[in-house]
Amino acid sequence: MSFASRADQSGFTLIELMISTVIGLMMISALLTAYVANSMNYRMQEAMSEVQEIGRFVLNQAAYDLRNAGLGTTADEIAVVGFVNADAAYADSNAKDVLLAKKDKISSPVLYIPVHDEGGDIAYYIANLGVGDSLYRYDPEFHKNKPQAIVSGVRQIALEYGVDGNSDQIVDSFELVSDVKDWTRVVAVRVSFLVSSTEQVLKKKQTLPDPFVINDRALYRIFTTTVVLRNKVL
């Protein structure tokens, strides 16, 4: 075989191999980047769906109970009572009976709906009884003296109470629980739930308005509703 024929059969040069390797690595890097971006988008969409579902559920449940609060009571009777924390709620014998969780497990203000013609004796609060922060709603008709979390992922509650200061059945001001002097004058409740995703999907933690404080990178949303206590204004 001649030297010319051997030269014609020679392979790639080192430079060509290096260039092809770099091109291949760039293509793999682009594919990995696209995969990671799509994976992050998917996780974010899942987290948003999870938070939205929980938020809608807790708003509907709380609004239902608040609309029925005080059914059959008179204008000078109490439809709802708020407590700044578990200690304050446990000091009230009626509210204490429906908390059912140890005080040190409750990490939120407590909303209590006293007994009325069609039910009541319901308490809302956040507690951690082994499954993470969860929203508890006690109803003796269904829960039979056992704490019952209705949904996990609700991390905090904020409550404001609409006070009718001049007996015209119109809210004159929204007050924090520590500012309410006469619970018979509360005719509306503004409740906000802080809901989080299960996964840590953000690069850094969010900044939230007072009174909410967080310390992780989960996705958070605040769900707020204002409910007129119709049995106090009819």
Rank of each mutant, 00 (worst) to 15 (best):
Y220A: 01
I157E: 01
L32G: 13
E160D: 14
G119L: 11
G70W: 00
S29E: 04
L208G: 05
S5F: 04
K203T: 14
H116D: 09
V81A: 06
Y112W: 10
V195K: 05
Q52K: 14
M48V: 15
A91L: 12
S10K: 10
D97M: 12
A75M: 02
A91I: 09
N215V: 00
F83Y: 11
V22S: 11
T21D: 08
G70V: 01
V213W: 01
G120D: 00
L32V: 15
V154L: 04
Y220H: 05
T198Q: 10
A30G: 10
K144I: 09
L176S: 15
D179Y: 06
L17Q: 07
H116N: 13
A63Y: 04
L66E: 00
A149N: 08
D117G: 12
Y125K: 07
M18T: 14
F212A: 04
G153E: 01
L111Q: 10
A95E: 03
G120C: 03
V98R: 03
M26G: 08
L31V: 15
Q148N: 14
E160G: 08
L32W: 10
T74L: 01
F142K: 12
M18G: 06
M18L: 15
A158N: 14
V115I: 13
S152D: 09
Y138M: 13
R190L: 02
F174N: 12
S108A: 12
R56C: 07
R67N: 05
T74S: 01
T226D: 01
P209I: 03
L66R: 00
L202G: 05
N215L: 00
V22D: 02
I150P: 01
T225L: 00
F142E: 14
Q61V: 15
L111F: 09
S152E: 08
V110Y: 01
T73Y: 00
Y138K: 06
R43Q: 15
L66A: 02
G162K: 02
M27K: 08
V191T: 15
P147W: 00
N145I: 04
V213L: 04
G24Y: 10
N38H: 13
I19D: 02
P140W: 06
E16L: 07
A4K: 09
R155H: 07
K96Q: 11
S5L: 11
D8L: 12
M18C: 11
E141W: 07
D210Q: 09
A158M: 04
S178K: 14
A86S: 13
Y124I: 04
S108H: 11
S20W: 05
S2C: 04
L17Y: 02
T207W: 00
R67A: 01
S2A: 05
M18Q: 11
A47D: 11
R137Q: 13
P211N: 03
L135V: 11
A188T: 15
